[in-house]
Nucleic acid binder design. Structure first.
Lengths: 122, 122
DNA sequence: ATTTCATTTGAATAATTGCTCAAGTGTTGT
DNA sequence: ACAACACTTGAGCAATTATTCAAATGAAAT
């Protein structure tokens, strides 16, 4: 208790030295935030299927909709999110808009994750 | 219109050949699902910080709480999720429970994503 | 100009998620 | 046996999110 009779948090046992050493090695919060945003883009079934498809070929919106079995509108919303997070590029050709992967890192990330999943046999 | 006077979806223009070729190369839905679950684990700021911390050292729950500035209860919830998704292991030592990374792939995934983020200078 | 087609957009809604709070384990020390 | 401690768990709540629907662009064809 402190002078106002409020409960004062008595810190639990913490290995101060260890915690400080780890904290020093952590990346900045801003990078962790960007990383989590990137992973968020990859964390939805539909979006991941879009990215896996674009890894194979450049595709227009309605082709992606056909591939995924999701409405054109829903796909367009997801593509905008992927575009904002710099995971895909787009180019217009007449009425159609073609989407493609932004860079090769995305493939590498997915490939590493695939290894992880395949090793964890359930 | 069909015989019941309902509107029948007239398929939009779709590059059938391209779509079929891409579809053939896509992984099974079950794998895409596992992948998206893995990325979902990585897509939250707190969880990602936990994983980055565990990449440096084995840690107990209250140390992780101290590192992240999040309540012990919230951390415990997140650790359970990470445990269920096979991203972390745990071992009991007396009253304390120590968590560690499950395998090295997780590090590799995060490192690839870091490269992606750092290349996309905004 | 008007229509058609591919795509985008905003609002609305149902489902999911991260946290808090309070109560519950399991282990150690007295 | 009892209290203290480290952690876990379930319920509940606010915030976020994936989709749908209807309306709006922008480009090409008539």
């Amino acid at each position: 208790m402190n002078k106002d009779n409020n409960i004062v948090c008595e810190v639990n046992f913490i290995d101060e030295k260890k915690v400080k050493a780890v904290r020093k090695k952590l990346p900045e919060d801003s990078l962790i935030n960007e990383l989590s945003e990137t992973f968020k883009s990859l964390s939805d079934f539909t979006r991941l299927k879009i990215l896996l498809s674009l890894a194979e070929d450049e595709l227009c919106v309605c082709d992606i909709a056909a591939l995924t079995g999701v409405s054109v509108s829903a796909i367009s919303h997801q593509l905008r999110l992927l575009k904002n997070n710099r995971l895909v590029n787009h180019r217009r050709e007449g009425k159609m808009v073609y989407y493609s992967l932004d860079d090769e890192h995305i493939n590498k990330i997915i490939n590493e994750a695939t290894k992880h999943c395949k090793e964890n046999i359930r």
